[in-house]
Amino acid sequence: MEALNVKDLQVAYDRKAVLDQVELSIPKGSLTAIVGPNGAGKSTLIKAILGMLKRSSGQISILGKPYSPKNRNVGYVPQRGSVDWDFPTNALDVILMGRYGHIGWFKRPSKQDIALAKEALHKLGMADYADRQIRQLSGGQQQRVFLARALVQDAEVYFMDEPFVGVDAKTEKAIIDLLRELKQKGKTVIVVHHDLQTVPEYFDHTLLLNRTVIANGPTEQVFTEDLLQKTYGGALAFFSTNGDKRVMS
């Protein structure tokens, strides 16, 4: 079963194609990394799949059905820098936003919604910060709030845009624990990832992207020197320690 299938996707800004002829499928239950150089269109790919950007062409299906937000089977973690953290709200309230799709028009969050949000805060080690104004959270804590918000969306397929960027070690561990737990529950997680070092350790499926799909498959088959050089246009330096190939970007 496929979690995500994309056919003939094209996205253009000012008539210049940023993504072209993107065809891909991601297996259900995988932890997938989307990897590629700056400007490769990684975030654009996620946003185009989720309909936040206009597509020139392309069919998207999630778990075998055409994508619609109304199916509520897709969770989303945007880049941390995409919102105004000075917004007058606290951590618990942001997490509750993940329930809005379930709550319905005009209604306020129920006790059950609040309990779910608190549970998510607890899971990410943020139980003491529920009432904290979001501006007063550290970068890593803000990232964990976003993850908790996606968690309470109770989705089947998750898209995360650079969740590991600029976070502390504690947050990195919290995120990776969460990803593994989601995988164990049979969920699919698709992550835009910057740090090439950790790709083989964290992800079992990898998509190499540079304006179009360079390679897509199990990490051990795709994460090779050849294909990475092809993706990064030969701009990568490799060195080996103890016979173990390491990659420097």
Partner: peptide, 16 residues
């Protein structure tokens, strides 16, 4: 509730 989400995070609002 709807306006709050729309203003704080329009992309997430769309996803919801």
């Amino acid at each position: 509730k709807e306006w709050k989400l729309l203003i704080f995070d329009p992309d997430f609002a769309k996803n919801s």
